[in-house]
Design a binder for these strands. Structure first.
Lengths: 204, 204
DNA sequence: GGAGATTACGACCGATCGTGCTAATTTGTC
DNA sequence: GACAAATTAGCACGATCGGTCGTAATCTCC
């Protein structure tokens, strides 16, 4: 889903460069922040000149938008093993596990890209903030869909409010993300796994 | 608890300026970030010159450390109504409510100072990060103490692990903080209040 | 009331920020 | 193989970054 990508012909080598830049940008942004990430340092990180970057992105904001989309793709790939689980309760647990696993393996060195991005930009109006909010909503909607599926299958009590349940589950795993990084302690992730399981067991 | 404050005599007018600076810094930092907060903009915000600020803080890091301590004091004052509740389960709920209330009233315009600071600095080694981590631990320890008190009073099941329970409770209210800001929707705070209550009811 | 410390300012430093302009090189297409 | 388009680098710009210095005004304390 491209954000009004102004189409223009791309050369193969350019495409490769662009991909390398965005991969580095997505990783760096979780450490320096999407604002703190500077064109100069990013150029150094990929071994290019600042103006070389500008051939691919006409402004910093456009670079940030493309970076968020790249992070979305990376996260989606990380969640794929979770999506492979049978739909319903099992998939919810598998998705949470996949998320916690990608935090633990430091796919993004600064933890979940969207947790970091949301914390940084939630109070800074603009297209980047909006894109992050939209992406986050998709993740929430995905989980809510699985909850409803699980309810239809009788795995989760019908009285349970999907929005409330997903709010709590997401809260648990996002907290694990922050604490794992802040305290450098893998037990935080284990607490999240336990919390998710027990919360789901309690809902039937 | 002062962080090795190099003592030096202070004049009454200087103390007032210093307080004004730190108040503005604590608020601004939740929007711009502790790194993104620049000396120049902060000076403008309080109507002083950059070099005027440097009469109070010898470096940006020292300003950041003092800002974190100021934020601690502000938060502690906000939690006071919670601490006024009878110890145990009631106080846990009152503390969570006080926290959510200070988010809703935007005591810090960018939400919880420590959630924002932890997200920004958790991967950036240094004294500021360490101070934030220490302050966060105090909050966690405070809640855990209340849980143990509640257990001793028979309000919470003895089988409940205080660390696990507080991890989940804190996850819920921190998630509310982020989502309230990102989606600009007060229902997120209501979900947190409900989540905290139900989680505590379930533990006995 | 005078000495000495504190507060505040303006000017200034080198570095880096995002962003243009230009030119050379590489690539894909007819 | 020629030509247009895409890619990348070099350079320079104005603004802003954190920080220093010298100096003037002001407060505190003996």
């Amino acid at each position: 889903m491209g954000v009004e990508t102004t189409e223009r012909r791309r050369r193969a080598d350019g495409e490769r460069s662009r991909e390398k830049i965005l991969q580095a940008a997505a990783e760096l942004a979780t450490i320096e922040g999407l604002n703190g990430l500077s064109i100069g340092r990013l150029a150094d990180a990929v071994g290019m000149s600042k103006s070389g970057l500008y051939a691919h992105f006409r402004s910093k904001e456009e670079l940030q938008l493309a970076t968020v989309e790249t992070a979305s793709r990376i996260l989606a790939a990380e969640l794929e093993p979770g999506m492979a689980a049978p739909e319903g309760k099992a998939r919810i647990i598998a998705l949470c596990d996949a998320f916690l696993s990608h935090v633990e393996r430091r796919v993004f060195p600064g933890g979940c890209f969207f947790a970091s991005g949301a914390a940084e930009l939630s109070t800074q109006p603009g297209r980047v903030r909006d894109l992050i909010a939209t992406s986050y909503r998709e993740w929430i909607a995905l989980l809510q869909g699985e909850v409803r599926t699980a309810q239809a299958a009788g795995e989760i009590d019908e009285g349970e409010d999907p929005e409330q349940l997903v709010f709590e589950l997401n809260g648990i795993i996002v907290a694990a993300n922050v604490f794992f990084l802040l305290f450098d302690d893998a037990r935080e992730l284990e607490r999240a796994r336990r919390g998710v399981r027990e919360r789901l067991e309690n809902s039937h």
